[in-house]
Amino acid sequence: MATTTARPAPDELPKAPRDLLPVFIPPILALAALPLVGSPTTWVTLTVAALAMGMMIFVIASGLTLIFGLMDVLNFGHGAFIAVGAYIAMTVLGPLSGWVQSDALTLNLAALFLAVIAAMVGTGVLGLAFERIIVQPVYGQHLKQILITMGGLIVAEQLIHVVWGGDQKPMPLPNGLRGAITVGDFALEKFRLLAVAVGLTVFIIMQLVLNRTKVGLLIRAGVENREMVEALGYRIRQLFVGVFIAGSALAGLGGTMWALYRETLTAAIGGDIMVLVFIVIIIGGLGSVGGCFLGAILVALMANYTGYLAPKIAVASNILLMVAILMWRPQGLYPVARR
């Protein structure tokens, strides 16, 4: 028997309908904010800042949405990986202060790269331990998951106090990433552009893995129907662990970026951003990476525009955004077919 894959001729096949409507919401929101903000330069600054913030939230949330989608685990301890990742990065950047303060961008980026790798490896290992010790005993029990992962977050924060101290730590940006690039009248901060590039890279890699590889197919299938994936002969437990580790490592990456963005660091850095992260994964559709990407941009745009226009409603604005989107699409922007 031949072993090549049969492919029917493409011209015989009907086209699948594409649901692009949610893709237009962020540009519509941005354009709607332009007359309210007034100044185009301020609007560009706010929008780029929002895109950078959105990409960092996406990097953190993308792993969590897959963990929820595939494993049905409500992991309120995800914030621990954000904080631990940031602290590991800070620890690595300390001895590399010569590279961080150098005017050579390559040395800056090399220091950052090492810090990010250490953060991702550290949080990946922590994720493995967290899954084995804390999450595994409560699979399928949502209430216990919430309680025990919240407990895990509190323990992690206290351990950070023990290891690194309870005071606020500085997390200075490398010299080469300070300042802005000027394009005409617009100043684009270098670190924000880097954050956008990192977020886009993570998104593209995740899309390629999810859509072009068998592991990705298994993850997408597992998000829909774990039981059937097992009935096809795949050991989904191993996939669970892999996704948990990857999700934790991404939180470590996001935590490092977020701490550099704020240039300060406390043990509560993860818990602080988790409200936005949960809003993002609910808006996007639990388990949907594409929805998570759009949700993160939307949440960040809303936070930045309202923070400028009406600071008092900045926090509430994202709750209102979530309510509006769920009234339109109760399962989120890109709901996963069956859960």
Partner: peptide
């Protein structure tokens, strides 16, 4: 798997290699 194409469903079912 509703979100996967027919081809992807079949590809997953062929556990030992391409269909």
């Amino acid at each position: 798997f509703a979100d996967l194409t027919v081809a992807e469903n079949m590809r997953l079912a062929a556990r030992l290699g391409p269909p």
